[in-house]
Nucleic acid binder design. Structure first.
Lengths: 261, 261
DNA sequence: TACCGATGGTTCAAATAATAAACCACGCAA
DNA sequence: TTGCGTGGTTTATTATTTGAACCATCGGTA
């Protein structure tokens, strides 16, 4: 692991719950030498990736993020384009909807919307990375993304989160084959005992998968009827969202959707 | 300059006009060794700050940006909160409005809106960093930001962009004193021969300046009447925008505004 | 076919930059 | 005072970064 990675990994400690972090806290979180961390922090601050609160001396995410976000969204919009669609979709199904993208071997949430139509809701934290093998979104990535990634993840260590988490490569392979045929991935209690999800791919300009959209419901509400409706809604919005990001469903996928409906 | 800075500086080459950059192009732009640049790029890609187009082999800004943007805007919103306000303000004055923040010793654009009510417009590129001493926005930063920054910039090299660019520290100091008294900064032809601007500070929660808002017009349209109207509109929106980001005008500034109106 | 000039990517000894223990200064509470 | 927690700095030691030269591949051209 090079210096760059080590420095940028510091940024992953930021979250909505922890928006400002001091030097000592960073040292504890990263389990690294203080002098090193301090040099990382000052250098990141010089680049604008961090800014230091002149009172508390703590560090927060800096303005460079805003510029880079602007450039990325101006040229290949994802978040800005899907924001309203995610809200609409959440209102239609009446459940939590979230969009995530692949980052390394994890899932990085990009957006979510919770219509809060029910007393119980699935909690969702956009700043927490999710595993690929134990979430419906992740399995959608493995099913519709590059085959090489799928094999790499299945052959790597597969952490157990609940009693129902699938940690056998072959069991996962079987499900992925099924998901590929159906065009959608689903999972119950794989990551959280009280959550059931369905997820499908969002395709970009070249028919490449740019992200996944998922519906998550408390298992208590995951009746057969509800699940069927979720699948229906998901299929519809997969097409809409892919279109919104300037993408097209690849021939292979299009086929599956129409065959399934 | 440490490794982190050198690596992150690669990201500054991205812009709306140049959203994807290949290895060789990076080498030319950064004037560095190819092996080094390649290591930087792969490492940045591993962290999710870049992603590689599997066809063209070129690099684009990656999904990590989206996550960090989400965290920053969720905890100290700027861009998302000001977006609609900037548009409204631009519609009201009928001219280009932009918001920028300080990054290092430069100005980093965050947002802009152009109502395009006239045949000629000021061109504005959100991905280009601006100098502090030669723009109205920059002078607003120097006038209402920390004194230490002001002195550091004035004592440093002051590049000339047009015949009218002020490059004498004392001349700039005089104008900054005036701007401090008036609560707004203005400048004609300091950075571009055909542009006149006015800018004012946006204050955050602690009465600290979090950014600047500016109106830019072609010099041809910068009549006295127009400029007076710009000042009026600017004063109004400085208060509104500061309020929108959860900030308050510091007592010293509040005083100036009311005294001026 | 061979050749050329691009591209992206890799290797390894040499040079340089990162590291971590110990340190300082400060603020606060007992 | 002492003790403990901050944030920040210095130092020789050590490990990482560096860059010239290298390879592989692509597309165009003679």
């Amino acid at each position: 692991m090079g210096t760059i990675t080590k420095a940028l990994d510091l940024l992953t400690f930021f979250s909505v719950q922890r928006p400002e972090i001091g030097l000592s806290e960073f040292v504890r979180l990263a389990a690294r030498d203080k002098a090193t961390v301090h040099r990382y922090l000052t250098e990141l601050a010089e680049c604008g990736f961090l800014e230091q609160n002149s009172k508390s001396r703590g560090y927060r995410l800096g303005p460079a993020i805003l510029r880079l976000y602007g450039v990325r969204e101006a040229t290949s919009p994802l978040r800005s384009v899907l924001r309203d669609l995610v809200s609409e979709m959440a209102d239609e199904i009446g459940e939590l909807v979230h969009v995530s993208v692949l980052q390394g071997s994890q899932l990085s949430p990009v957006l979510h919307a919770d219509p809060r139509q029910h007393g119980t809701q699935v909690a969702f934290d956009e700043s927490v990375m999710l595993p690929l093998h134990a979430t419906a979104s992740g399995l959608a990535i493995l099913s519709f993304g590059p085959q090489s990634l799928c094999e790499r993840v299945l052959n790597g260590p597969l952490e157990r989160f609940t009693a129902a988490t699938l940690t056998e490569p072959d069991a996962l392979r079987a499900r992925i084959a099924l998901f590929r045929a159906r065009g959608i991935a689903w999972l119950e209690q794989g990551f959280d005992d009280e959550v059931a999800s369905q997820a499908g791919p969002i395709f970009g300009p070249d028919g490449e998968m740019v992200g996944v959209v998922a519906i998550a419901v408390p298992t208590a509400r995951a009746s057969d009827e509800k699940c069927a409706r979720m699948t229906e809604v998901l299929h519809k919005w997969i097409a809409r969202m892919s279109q919104a990001v300037g993408g097209t469903l690849p021939a292979s996928y299009q086929h599956k959707v129409t065959a399934d409906d």
